[in-house]
Simulated scan of single mutants.
Amino acid sequence: MCGSYTFNILFSVIFMVILFGCLCEARVHVNVDIINNIDPNVQLGLHCKSKHKDLGSQSLAPGKHWGFIEGINAWETTLFFCHFEWGSQSKWFDILVTKRDQYVCKRHSCVWSIRHDGPCRLTGREKCYHWRDNI
């Protein structure tokens, strides 16, 4: 009986290692690319982060871009939000929302054009969004 119990425990541990190893390997990664299209003469400040990761502050000259690559978690709840500043403006937007972006951006970068009236995702069919209310 002890041998059977040991075998079951060992088998369960090996199965879990293989299962979770496959889940980690199969993670989908999304490339996010942000372009400053505010105005030809306006510098854009941005700071992107998630609940667990801070990507730091960036500064984009007009027409320039910055990006990051992030893996989508197994629960498909990955979320990155960015704070954008230019002139006297201060805006927020959820730049990576798994349910909204992962299938559109799975094979190509999720390219975002940051504009006065809101961010527009250029990947796939262009879609523009409203700024979030300030946090």
Rank of each mutant, 00 (worst) to 15 (best):
G71L: 00
P119N: 02
C120G: 01
F81K: 11
S88N: 15
Q102I: 02
G56A: 03
L60C: 06
Q43H: 09
G67L: 00
C48I: 00
V104D: 09
D39Y: 09
G21P: 10
F93K: 02
E70G: 15
I135Q: 11
S57F: 07
V104N: 14
F68A: 04
D133K: 15
R27L: 02
I114T: 07
S12L: 08
C82K: 06
R132H: 09
L10Y: 08
I135K: 13
V42D: 00
E70L: 13
L44H: 07
I38C: 10
H47P: 07
H83N: 05
F80G: 04
E25D: 04
G63M: 06
S59W: 11
N41R: 02
F15S: 01
S88G: 10
S59G: 12
M16C: 12
I72W: 04
G124Q: 02
G71Y: 10
H130N: 13
C24F: 08
L46W: 04
W131M: 02
N8S: 09
T6F: 12
G87N: 11
E85V: 05
V42N: 01
L122C: 03
I95K: 03
A74I: 13
R27H: 03
S90T: 06
D117Y: 14
D54E: 06
K106M: 02
F80A: 00
M1S: 08
V42G: 00
G118Q: 06
G118M: 04
F68M: 04
G56V: 07
N8K: 08
D133P: 13
D33M: 14
W131K: 05
K127A: 04
N31P: 15
F20Y: 14
H116T: 10
H29A: 13
H29P: 11
R115D: 00
Q89H: 11
S4H: 09
K91L: 04
G21Y: 10
A61I: 07
D117V: 09
E76N: 14
L23D: 03
F20I: 07
P40R: 09
K51N: 14
K51I: 13
L44D: 02
K91Q: 14
V111L: 12
K51W: 14
M1Q: 02
F20Q: 06
L19M: 03
K99L: 12
H108L: 14
I72S: 04
D39H: 15
N41K: 06
K64L: 09
F11C: 07
T6C: 11
Q102L: 05
I34Y: 03
V32C: 11
N31Q: 15
T77I: 05
H29K: 15
L96Y: 06
G45I: 00
H47V: 00
V111Q: 11
L23E: 06
I38E: 07
Q89K: 12
E25F: 15
K51T: 15
N8H: 05
S88F: 12
N73A: 02
T98K: 08
F20K: 09
F81S: 13
Y103K: 08
E126N: 15
A26E: 01
P62Y: 11
T6H: 10
N37Y: 14
R132Y: 05
L55V: 07
V104F: 11
R100A: 01
I34F: 04
G3R: 14
I38R: 13
H52M: 10
Y103G: 01
R100V: 02
C48S: 03
